[in-house]
Design a protein around this nucleic acid. Structure first.
Lengths: 193, 193
DNA sequence: AAATAAATGTGACGTATATCACATTTATTT
DNA sequence: AAATAAATGTGATATACGTCACATTTATTT
């Protein structure tokens, strides 16, 4: 259950076993079936989730009813509506399971307590948040600078495993292109080869 | 010189004076005149900069020669190409001064050392990076979900001070719209009023 | 195994926004 | 104060991509 989390943390910073055993007690285990919601727009995001198994997505729905995916999270990644989690404001995001998932949930107070009591954890979270920021900045600039086709191919190159597990129209939604356009881009690319 | 930095840090976490005096010794003071570069594409980003006075921007130039602004940083904000700073890879970003600036520079090794020796600083940086991530995620979703006009007006609402100090075509570049389109959006909005 | 739902493909058409080109206004430099 | 450079405005035209509508294929549920 906690092996993956342990592995992920120690890849970044040494944690002694005692500390980690203590940290374990902070979590709540949660399972969701495919299509179930972890968070719905308007609710407050009370937990962040470490994905032990399966795949989640977070997304907004715009005024016209189209959805835009912010993030996918598979095994070893964290998922939450950070903004709502930190402010306790109602969420603008939806988060649901794309496959059956097993999650380790951590409330905000427990999270803060853990980081306070175990400095290595503050370091760990600083690093992963920092990495997350770097990749989000890259994605933002790419969304400004690149064409639909370039964005799609960069997505393929960056998240090859994800493409196997996620339906095409969600890749389109993540990349910022309509599903029809993505279908045409793929056709062209196939013909060129 | 360091007053603003002290204020900014203590707004987030208590720091005792001794620690802060020690932290001070880690910085290099740097002044740049308007239009001068802090970082040029291809160079490694050796410093992150705390802006004491003035205004900076970071941006990429795409294949067609258009530029896309990632960030503005005025008094009290940090600026760097985080990716290059962390990896030592050549930067894809340019950073230059939009006004004469005074900066406090911090190298990567000094930064790491400071956070290691003063745990409050790791906390401080975790928080500001986290806030930065939240706002970047919002901006990303808005860039996917909103029209040019909505994006512009949201920019006005979010960064009213910035609009006073930054030329219009850079606002356009930040928002992800051509300068001509922004000019027309403004005309329309003025007519409607 | 049938029934239902989800995902994908594809043509016809529409539109928001980019691009180009030049004029005008506003800053900056010498 | 003149000269030069930067920024903005505006029309005409182009285009990448979205939207709509329906057919086809592939999963999921009962």
């Amino acid at each position: 259950m906690f092996n993956l989390l342990y592995k992920k943390i120690s890849a970044i910073t040494p944690v002694n076993e005692e500390e980690f055993d203590y940290f374990k007690t902070f979590f709540i285990l949660k399972k969701l079936r495919k299509r179930q919601y972890f968070l719905q727009e308007g609710d407050v995001c009370k937990y962040q989730a470490f994905v032990v198994k399966g795949l989640l997505r977070s997304y907004t729905i715009d005024g016209k009813g189209s959805d835009h995916i912010l993030q996918f999270a598979s095994e070893g990644w964290w998922m939450a509506d950070l903004s709502s989690y930190l402010t306790n404001d109602p969420s603008f995001l939806n988060i649901n399971a794309l496959e059956d998932v097993e999650l380790l949930l951590l409330t905000r107070p427990k999270w803060e307590q853990a980081m306070k009591e175990i400095p290595a954890l503050e370091h760990y979270f600083r690093i992963i948040i920092q990495n997350h920021l770097v990749s989000t900045q890259k994605r933002l600039l790419q969304s400004l600078a690149e064409t639909a086709e370039e964005k799609y191919h960069r997505f393929l190159a960056t998240y090859p495993e994800c493409v196997q597990r996620v339906p095409q129209h969600m890749v389109a939604s993540y990349v910022g292109v309509s599903r029809e356009t993505l279908s045409r881009i793929r056709k062209q690319a196939a013909e060129r080869k």
